[in-house]
């Protein structure tokens, strides 16, 4: 960790020279080095985790792949930087990673003082609590006096303090830097309660010794819009990262999947033609600094938003998280993409 912060500091110092020498835009840099450097979680099943042979997979990882596909037409041109909750921001600030796709909550502080930009929300989450069934707790309001395991440097830590204060409950925070340490401590019974984003709780429950002995309480105590973050000051790059997400959502809206995308290119629907860049004289991709068929490449690489969701965290995965808020706007959720026009 210390090493990474040091790298970040030196990076911050050297960045000036580096930036002058190389191309002025992140897109130019990424194209020049030939791969996308993507900041992901150190290991959160369903969102970003490496397998035994070091191949990364997960919801956030698919966003890295989708961005790489949009740029290079090749989803494998990604290098992953696993970051803890604490060193993710220095990593992005210093330019160590090009984009941070690491279940990171969009807050005003991160959007302003930390110097980042958020726009696309790829997962609407909220903070929840997990406890042992044997404690017989039915609601978070019964948690007064409990020891609560939480990861440091997260919005979770702040929401927790606010929630317990607002409801006049006592608690004893047990704080760790790494997710694995929090898991181990909770599993060993160091604390009664585990709190993080609900999606995280579902994922973490699978890694516990006896997942069925734990329940996730019904309360959601915060809004946690998660999405990819980029550095301020490069609007083109910001647009690319945002529109990759909108392309995924748009594709689901149009019913375009990784299986039928080639057929859909022959569609007579002008909206779809425009979206897939097959319209005559289109500038739909070149305006972004990409090829006109970038959306096709993205969908071929990872599928549409629904496919990405189901494969990693939804019904097609061990996590089995409901779409809920993350369903399309037309299906009762709030995932919505601006028009491609």
């Amino acid at each position: 960790m210390a090493k990474r912060i040091l790298t970040a500091l030196i990076g911050a110092a050297v960045m000036g020279i580096g930036a002058q020498a190389a191309s002025a835009t992140t897109l130019g840099d990424v194209k020049a080095k030939g791969f996308l450097q993507c900041g992901v979680n150190t290991g959160l099943t369903g969102f970003a985790s490496p397998d035994a042979s070091g191949n990364w997979s997960g919801f956030d990882v698919d966003y890295c792949k989708a961005i790489a596909a949009a740029i290079f037409g090749d989803a494998t041109k990604v290098k992953y930087t696993p970051t803890s909750a604490k060193d993710r921001f220095p990593a992005l600030q210093s330019g160590e990673v090009d984009v941070l796709a690491r279940n990171t909550t969009w807050t005003i502080n991160r959007d302003t003082a930390l110097g980042f930009n958020f726009r696309a929300v790829n997962y609407y989450d909220g903070q929840g609590f997990m406890v042992r069934k044997s404690l017989n707790v039915k609601s978070a309001l019964e948690l007064s006096g409990a020891a609560v395991c939480v990861q440091t440097g997260t919005t979770t830590e702040l929401n927790l303090a606010d929630y317990f204060k607002a409801n006049n409950l006592q608690y004893n925070p047990v704080v760790f830097e790494k997710l694995e340490e929090v898991n181990a401590a909770y599993d060993a019974g160091r604390c009664d309660v585990y709190t993080t984003d609900q999606s995280g709780l579902y994922s973490l429950r699978l890694t516990l010794a006896a997942p069925d002995d734990h329940i996730i309480l019904p309360e959601i105590i915060s809004k946690e819009p998660l999405g990819p973050a980029v550095r301020q000051g490069d609007d083109q790059w910001f647009d690319i990262v945002s529109w990759v997400h909108y392309a995924l959502v748009g594709a689901e809206d149009f019913g375009i999947t990784s299986a039928n995308v080639e057929e859909m290119k022959k569609s007579t629907n002008p909206d779809i033609q425009r979206f897939l860049g097959v319209e005559a004289d289109t500038k739909i991709g070149t305006d972004l600094g990409l090829d006109n068929d970038w959306a096709v490449k993205v969908i071929k690489a990872v599928g549409n938003y629904g496919e990405v969701f189901d494969r990693n965290i939804g019904t097609g995965s061990p996590l089995k998280i409901e779409r809920g808020l993350n369903a399309l706007w037309s299906k009762g959720g709030i995932q919505y993409a601006p028009p491609v026009r």
Partner: peptide, 12 residues
């Protein structure tokens, strides 16, 4: 310090 670093982003 690490917690504060993360909440405020004031690494340096």
């Amino acid at each position: 310090g690490g917690t504060i670093l993360n909440q405020t982003g004031q690494a340096v």
